Computed example of a mutant assay.
Amino acid sequence: MPDAPPLRLDDVHLTLPSAAGPVEILRGLNVQVNAGERVALVGPSGSGKSSLIAVAAGLERPTRGSVSLFGRDLARLDEDGRARLRRGRVSLVFQAFHLLPNMTAEENVAAPLEIAGLRDATATARSWLDRVGLSGRLRHYPHQLSGGEQQRVALARALAPRPALLFADEPTGNLDAVNARHVADLILELTAETGAAMVLVTHDEALAGRASRTVRLRDGRAA
């Protein structure tokens, strides 16, 4: 479905078990993200922002409602099918950097490109690391990099396949103010350059204000 939006959630509910009984995390969310649109998700802790990302990316199945990626209903796909649909088209950046500790910066960026069967993975990885200001850190391991540098490697890894949709869950949350501004600038600049749609979870109102649109969540609902 070439004209379908990258992401659409219709009446999405998510209820998870707990020791005290079922907990309603999402309560009837309706969200659509169009091609090239950058949508910020803001709200207090526990409002369902990260859960929305997990459901929207097909990492968690909703209890009720439907989630469509690029016009495909995720409920009709098994885990492998969802992974194939995401491959090369959906990327994620988290507050925790999730770099592979036994791989260099270059290898961390090149690995998903190689898995996707893309040619010139190493050259592409070097190019993207240069674009995030890390051309001098190609062969450094994560423990040899600062937090800001690790998040820039994670950003290069996410954008190197030129995804159509980027999920960014508090990407500046673990960074000091200077690095947070730098990473925020890079995310907005590079997603605009690649044309990727983005769903951005953030507590930073200034960063949210730079998105195309803001969705405010409270108690699992869009406020």
Rank of each mutant, 00 (worst) to 15 (best):
residue 81 G to Y: 09
residue 84 R to E: 10
residue 85 L to A: 09
residue 86 R to H: 09
residue 87 R to C: 05
residue 88 G to Q: 12
residue 88 G to I: 15
residue 90 V to N: 02
residue 91 S to H: 11
residue 91 S to D: 09
residue 91 S to W: 13
residue 96 A to L: 08
residue 98 H to Q: 13
residue 98 H to G: 00
residue 99 L to R: 10
residue 99 L to H: 06
residue 100 L to P: 00
residue 101 P to L: 08
residue 101 P to C: 05
residue 103 M to Y: 14
residue 104 T to W: 02
residue 104 T to M: 04
residue 104 T to C: 10
residue 104 T to V: 04
residue 105 A to V: 06
residue 109 V to H: 02
residue 109 V to L: 07
residue 109 V to R: 00
residue 110 A to M: 09
residue 112 P to R: 10
residue 112 P to I: 15
residue 113 L to R: 02
residue 114 E to I: 06
residue 114 E to H: 07
residue 115 I to E: 03
residue 116 A to W: 15
residue 116 A to S: 11
residue 117 G to V: 03
residue 117 G to D: 03
residue 117 G to E: 04
residue 119 R to W: 04
residue 120 D to S: 13
residue 120 D to H: 13
residue 121 A to P: 07
residue 121 A to F: 10
residue 122 T to Q: 09
residue 122 T to C: 03
residue 122 T to N: 00
residue 123 A to M: 13
residue 123 A to E: 14
residue 123 A to H: 11
residue 124 T to E: 12
residue 125 A to L: 11
residue 125 A to N: 02
residue 126 R to L: 07
residue 126 R to G: 07
residue 126 R to W: 07
residue 130 D to Q: 13
residue 130 D to H: 13
residue 130 D to P: 10
residue 130 D to N: 11
residue 131 R to L: 08
residue 131 R to E: 11
residue 132 V to C: 08
residue 132 V to H: 04
residue 134 L to S: 11
residue 134 L to M: 05
residue 134 L to C: 12
residue 135 S to P: 00
residue 135 S to M: 01
residue 135 S to F: 00
residue 136 G to P: 01
residue 138 L to R: 02
residue 139 R to D: 13
residue 139 R to T: 04
residue 141 Y to D: 06
residue 142 P to V: 08
residue 147 G to H: 09
residue 149 E to M: 02
residue 149 E to K: 01
residue 151 Q to E: 12
residue 151 Q to C: 10
residue 153 V to W: 01
residue 155 L to V: 14
residue 155 L to C: 10
residue 156 A to H: 04
residue 156 A to Q: 04
residue 156 A to S: 06
residue 157 R to Y: 08
residue 157 R to H: 04
residue 157 R to I: 15
residue 158 A to C: 10
residue 162 R to M: 03
residue 162 R to H: 02
residue 162 R to Y: 00
residue 163 P to C: 07
residue 163 P to M: 13
residue 164 A to G: 07
residue 165 L to I: 12
residue 167 F to I: 14
residue 169 D to W: 03
residue 169 D to Y: 06
residue 169 D to E: 06
residue 169 D to L: 04
residue 170 E to R: 07
residue 170 E to V: 14
residue 171 P to W: 09
residue 176 D to T: 08
residue 177 A to C: 00
residue 178 V to K: 13
residue 178 V to D: 14
residue 178 V to L: 12
residue 179 N to T: 11
residue 180 A to G: 09
residue 181 R to L: 14
residue 182 H to L: 15
residue 183 V to G: 01
residue 185 D to L: 08
residue 185 D to I: 10
residue 186 L to M: 05
residue 186 L to D: 03
residue 187 I to M: 15
residue 187 I to H: 01
residue 187 I to Q: 07
residue 187 I to N: 01
residue 189 E to P: 03
residue 191 T to S: 04
residue 193 E to A: 15
residue 195 G to C: 09
residue 196 A to K: 03
residue 197 A to G: 13
residue 198 M to L: 12
residue 201 V to C: 01
residue 201 V to S: 05
residue 202 T to A: 06
